[in-house]
Design a binder for these strands. Structure first.
Length: 314
DNA sequence: AAGACGAAAGTGGTTGA
DNA sequence: TCAACAACTTTCGTCTT
């Protein structure tokens, strides 16, 4: 696979020797396409064939998609009859009864086969879940640390046997949602649901469940966490950002944010800040990036203006 | 014509009995 | 399980720039 072509391979490629120093230690460097002598450094051949795949794969998903071969797959029975199965009848291949000693041995073998099969299944499910998390995270352009956090949460959920009865996709999405909040780069349930294969409702259910069972107590998302993303989506300056955050801190002190949807409050404060800084955006634009309606932006922004004693000249 | 404003009715989720 | 409830959305008409 891709790992094979990284770095240099040493050995005796083709049983050749260096014709300068006579050393048999030749090294292949597939990245440069050169065959060199490890002894004197002479480039013996500069157009060697790369035996690795001609494409590059950046993650597990791509590797799976681009691979031309692989295990035949079925969604229901993972081995599709390809692996050996020990018969449940205590007969040998001629139909004769087994000796008691032999029977005991077969019994133990069956037991182990059962165990290996389930651990195989959980491994496969885990691999699927992790690639699913990575796929969603890629779509949302989430940083590495969030993916790691999500993967960790999922592994914990598996350890605690929380997956049973729930879909892998649902729990994967829930883990990602929780990880986003944990890492203070919140995404709304809607955004997660968009890149997931399951409904927002199911993700929410799974999230609440694993949060409760894994004793994760996340504070409600602060509107402040949304500011950088919304502001950059609207191509607003840092000045507007800090103004909006300042407004929100004020608002939080006066309890204007509790009970309100954080995205709506964030949108309103950005709207106000954009007006105050002379970089006005329309209510519609702000509402769109925050995924709320103009009406909500208006309601929140009126509240903020009233309670904070702001006089926004429009 | 576009944006802002607000009223009114509808929706989905939470809460408490 | 059900009803009450607040937040939010949808829709639509009006006003302002």
């Amino acid at each position: 696979m891709a790992e094979d072509k990284q770095g240099k391979q040493q050995g005796k490629p083709g049983g050749r020797k260096c014709h300068v120093c006579g050393s048999p230690r030749l090294a292949r460097d597939y990245d440069r396409g050169e065959l060199t002598c490890a002894g004197c450094g002479l480039v013996i051949h500069d157009k060697i064939m790369d035996m690795g795949p001609e494409w590059r794969a950046f993650d597990q998903e791509q590797r799976e998609r681009r691979g031309r071969t692989g295990a035949p797959m079925t969604l229901t029975i993972h081995d599709k009859g390809l692996s050996t199965m020990i018969d449940w009848r205590d007969r040998d291949s001629h139909g004769k009864d087994l000796t008691p000693k032999r029977r005991a041995q077969i019994y133990r073998l069956r037991k182990w086969q059962r165990r290996i099969r389930v651990s195989d299944a959980t491994e496969r499910n885990l691999a699927f879940a992790l690639s699913e998390i990575d796929r969603m995270a890629s779509h949302l352009a989430l940083p590495r640390n969030v993916r790691e956090a999500a993967a960790l949460l999922y592994r914990k959920a598996v350890e605690e046997r929380l997956i049973r009865g729930r879909s892998i996709e649902g729990v994967s999405a829930a883990a990602l949602y929780a990880a986003c909040r944990e890492c203070k780069v919140p995404r709304t349930l809607d955004e997660i649901a968009d890149v997931s294969r399951v409904s927002k409702k199911e993700i929410g259910r799974s999230y609440r469940f694993i949060a409760r069972e894994l004793l994760i107590h996340l504070r409600p998302t602060s509107p402040i966490d949304y500011i950088p993303r919304f502001a950059s989506d609207l191509e607003l300056s840092g000045e507007v950002q800090s103004k909006a955050i300042e407004l929100l801190k004020d608002a939080q002190k006066k309890g204007l944010t509790s009970g309100r949807g954080p995205t709506g409050v964030a949108a309103a404060s950005i709207y106000i800040a954009s007006v105050l800084c002379g970089e006005r955006r329309t209510q519609r634009d702000v509402a769109d990036v925050a995924r709320v309606t103009e009406v909500t932006v208006r309601n929140r922004y009126k509240e903020l203006c009233d309670k904070l004693g702001l006089d926004v000249e429009l």
